[in-house]
Each structure stands twice: as structure tokens, then as C-alpha cells.
Nucleic acid binder design. Sequence first.
DNA 1: ATGAAAGCGCTAACAG
DNA 2: CTGTTAGCGCTTTCAT
Lengths: 346, 346
Amino acid sequence: MLPFHGGQRQDVIFLTIKEIAQLAGVSVATVSRTINHQGKASPEVQKRVWDIMKKYDYVPNATGRSLRTTRTGMVLVLLPLLSNSFYSPIVEGIDHAARQQGYNIIVATIQMDRATEDRYLSLVRMRQVDGLISLSSTLSTAEIQAFGQQHPFVIACECPQDARISCVEIDNYKAGYDAATSLIRRGHKRIAMINFDYVSLSPPLREKGFRKALKDAGITPDESLILHTEQFDIESGAASCEKLLSLPEPPTAVFCYSDPLAIGMIHALAAHGLHAGKDMEIIGFDNTDVAGVFLPGITSVAQPTFDIGVTAFGLLREKMLDLNSTPKRVTLPHTIVYRDTAKEPK
Amino acid sequence: MLPFHGGQRQDVIFLTIKEIAQLAGVSVATVSRTINHQGKASPEVQKRVWDIMKKYDYVPNATGRSLRTTRTGMVLVLLPLLSNSFYSPIVEGIDHAARQQGYNIIVATIQMDRATEDRYLSLVRMRQVDGLISLSSTLSTAEIQAFGQQHPFVIACECPQDARISCVEIDNYKAGYDAATSLIRRGHKRIAMINFDYVSLSPPLREKGFRKALKDAGITPDESLILHTEQFDIESGAASCEKLLSLPEPPTAVFCYSDPLAIGMIHALAAHGLHAGKDMEIIGFDNTDVAGVFLPGITSVAQPTFDIGVTAFGLLREKMLDLNSTPKRVTLPHTIVYRDTAKEPK
DNA sequence: ATGAAAGCGCTAACAG
DNA sequence: CTGTTAGCGCTTTCAT
């Protein structure tokens, strides 16, 4: 908890509800009612009050209001980084839903750093915001659950299996299964996966699905074709590609945990004079902006990002209305967007 | 101004400073002093109070505190869109500087929509945040100036020439001049510019600089080579490229207002079997993530984004300390990052 | 060093 | 329909 040294800002003169009341010749209650409950004051009085408010450019003080009502109308959304475009449409979905309920959303990034995340969790604890949607947390399952018991809190995209907390995500197991199946149906037998090795929940699920699809197709997963990287960035993709190409029998298709990994693959392939989509088929993940922009176009598993956002806010709203309501887990369907690097199977 | 219907949240029990005081057997004043002014209470009492606070997981209520101190410790950063990676490092710079002064920053997007922007400006007016940094505003110069007189407000990247408000940006005229000069020194004579045609401040400045560089080199700007697009996206870049290629005498080099325009150019070139950097040199703008990732790598004018952010917060801090302090305009230096699509001149 | 008390701006119960 | 008033949780004089 931080000490706090207040420094008054006495430089701007602004009116309070009390002064408006005096100017309009009514009580503060009437002004408040005029602002908040349109029916509760006579039309003439209301007009007079509105006119005064407009004339003096009155704006109610949110802090006074919040102290009284114990709500701020703000919801915090926590992202890992601002620069990952995957999250943008999720945030837009949250914002869309939030607005319809009269909430403003604000965004902050935790930089994958526990201390930073804690600073923003404090905003919730101190009730500077009414609720929290986290798109990526460094908290343990136990901490997540505890926090969710004390504050309106929902998780999107990376839901701990066993935490009793509202969350929304895709079925990562099925996504891995579907991506692998798509490549199998294209006739591939030697299929690699470049997986992300961070302490994150989706990678093992996607890998399980991937392995299951191969087995179901009668293909025994070749461990030398299943790589794990500490980052899911372009460099890791390129490095992994080099490893795969140096194998006695390289794969003919690759399923990547992320689009940047796929881009790295394409880079490395190009360095060898090889072409993604022709010499090797590649499927990325998240269908980020760059997937559609890149040359060649990157085939990618797409999450229903906007809907994830809308759903997340809906879940949060339930918790804000009743913290003791039963947590819900929502699973939304993914799709595969086919472009140049892996064709759609017939 | 929105009506506001408060709904109490009585579902969570949390302690107030008063209860902590009772539990510790001291007055609320002592608890407050313990939290905020470490020297003002005896060590024994302080320890007792801290222990109680820890034991009962006490967190001070930010709203009560803010009402009393008239500050919230939060600064709002307004972006056009979340998905434009150009802004990410600016926000990081703001955040970095803000933290050092004990502020939290929160981000919101105006979606280039006036109504949305107004909703967030209200957060400032209602004093739900202490200040505002806008990276892109739909306000008129007069409105910007007026708002800046009433609230701590600084603009980054797109500063109205004649508004008396603190702001930080690059010299867009010089950036246009430098980009053109770079291409001229590579020996190009027919140099095109694809400019953004929105009611925005930087496009005409960059174009002026571009034209001046040509003139200084004894080249008369060919109007058929200076195109204006309503968006600065990939599609516009591709369309512009088609126009240029259909000219009797197409350009050998192009300066684009943005990186996406450059990507569109590369796409269209590729569709004609031509290669950016070989058949036509291209310089983009903003050095966004994708510029370094794309194949071929995109040469781009880079803004000192992190520093812009740090500087913006510094300017805001001055205004938060004294709203009547003289507004400052800061100009930061740009650079050109050379990659494949345009080589560095010798 | 500590406590009592005022009051930040607002909403809502209560009374009329 | 309107006014009076209590009080949300906190910080900070002003006493002691």
C-alpha cells in the first residue's frame, strides 16, 4: 500500500452542486434529482436548473458521487502488452458491451510483470474501478480465485482449469486438433508443431489436441518434430525452422502456436530459397492483423475476439451486480482462416 | 452529462479506516498519519497499526481519499485505436515517466469518433483522472486550447500550430524533407509521394518538406506523382501503386505517409512481378513493428516514440503542478531506419 | 505524539 | 414536488 501525499489543486475554479443550487434558488437535492432522476422535479424547476448548469458549465464531481454510491462506472482491462494486436478486438468487444451499460473501460498493461500487475490490482482493491477483466495474468490459480471472491473479476483467453471464476475462452484442445486435422487432410504425414513453452495454459492443450489428431489419423507423433520455444516471436520461429530443416527428414507441414512464429518460419524458409505454402505448409494462430497482410498470406486459427470481449463484459456485469453469483465458464468457437501458407483441404 | 443511478454493493465486507482505528485502539488520524506520513506517529503505534492493517487486509478507499485530496493519481491517455502499434512505445514512455512520479496511467481509444472522445474528456472534467495526454484528437484548435486552460492537458504527435498548449512532436516538415533527400541522393529523379488526405496536421507538413527537397535538388515536383488517399491503409497503398504504374513514366522511388501504404505498394508491385527495393525504392513512415518484420524489410522514418511519451508526461506533470504554467512545445528528432526497400545513400 | 472534528461533493432517506 | 440532513472514507487543521 502506497503512502499518499495529497496536493490540492486550487488553481481552477469550478462549481459544486451546492453553488448550482444557490444560483438556481433550489436545494442541492433538487439539483441532484434533476441530474439523476428526470421525473422527480417539476419541469419548470428542471429547466431552470439545467439552464444554470449549462450557463456555468457545471460538471458533477465524479469522486463525490462515487464516494456516495460506491461505484465509479469504470472497468479496468488488463493486457500483457499494448503492441499485441490480437487483443485489440477483444478490448473493442468489451468496450462495446460496457458502453451499453453505461460503463467506461480503461486499459492498462502488466508488461508480464508481477509488480506492475499488483499496482493495477490495487486500483480494484481501492475501489478506483468497479471491476476487472484480465486477458493475461501472472497470478496463481489460488490468487485468481481469491481475488475473484473479493472483487468482480473475469478472465478471458487463459482460464485456469480449476479456479472458480467466470471466464471465456476457446477450446484450445480442439483448436490444436482441428489445425492438425486440416494439415492431415491435405495429405501431410510429417507434421511439426512449434509450441510456446511459457507457463501458460493454452500451449499444452493445443499440443494435446495436435497429438490426438495425429494418432486418430494413424500417425505416430515424431518427438523430433514437436519443438518448444521460450518466446513466441519471429526469431524463435526462424530458429525452429532451421532446426526442422536440418533434420534428416524435415516435415512438410507445421502448426505454429502463434503468427509471429509462422512469420519466422517463412523468413527462414525464404533464406533457404524455399516457399511457405509450396515447399512447406504452415498454420499460425490468432489470425492477427499481419497474417492477412503478409506475403504470402498466413493461414491461421482465428479466435472470436470481439465476441470474447462482449462475453467477458457480460460475465463481469453479472459479478458487479452480485458478487456471489455462480461463476460461469464460456467456450466460444474458433475457425481456421485459410490463406496462402496452407490451403483448405477438400 | 449522464444521469447516474447508484447501486450500492453491499455484498463485500471491507474495513474502513475507522474500524482499523478502533481495532488498533487509536484515532483515525493516527492511522491516516501512519499510512501517509511515516514520521508523524511513534514507532510502537505505527507498528501496531500496520499489523492490524495487514491482519485485516485493509486497503484504503481511493474515492474517499481522492475526495479529500482532489487528486486521483491517474492520468488518462487517449489513442485513436488500440491496434496501431505506432502508439505502443509512446504509451510505454508515458507509463515509465508516470510511475516515477507515483501516477498510474490508463488508456482509452476514441475510435476517431467525437462522441467517444467526449465521453473520455468527461472523465477529466469530472475529475475522475488528474490529467490527459492525447495522441490524436478530433477537437478543434479552439477547443483544445480551451480544454487546456481548464485541465492539465498535453498533446503528442499532432500539435495544432496556434494553440497555446503543451505538446511534443517531431518536425514533420523536416521529416518529409529528409525522406525525399535520401531518395534524391540515391540518384532518383522521378520520386512520388503517397500522402494521407485526412484533416490531420502532419500530412501537409511532410508534403511541404518533400516538395522543398525536390526543388532544392533542382527537380520540379511532378503533380501526377503526388497522390492523396483518404485512408493510410494497405488497400490505399496498393491502389496508389496501380495508379503510379499506369503512368506513361512511372516513378522510381516513393515516399509513403505510413508503413501500411508502403506495404500496399509492395503488394501491388509483387502482383506485377516487380520488387520493392529493386524495381522501385520505397520509404514508409513510423517504423512500426511490421516494417522490420516484413519481407522485404521496409525502410521507414522513425519517430522517437518512447521519448515522446516520457516528454509528454513531463509536460503534463508541469501542468498538474501548476495549471497556469506556460505551455511548452517540444520538438524531438526523427531518424530514417534503412532496410531493404530503400538503401541508405552514400 | 495523539485525538476531535470539520468537510471534500455528492445522493438518498426522510419529512413535509 | 421539494428541502433538510446524514453520511460515504478519508486527510488535515487545530487543540491538547
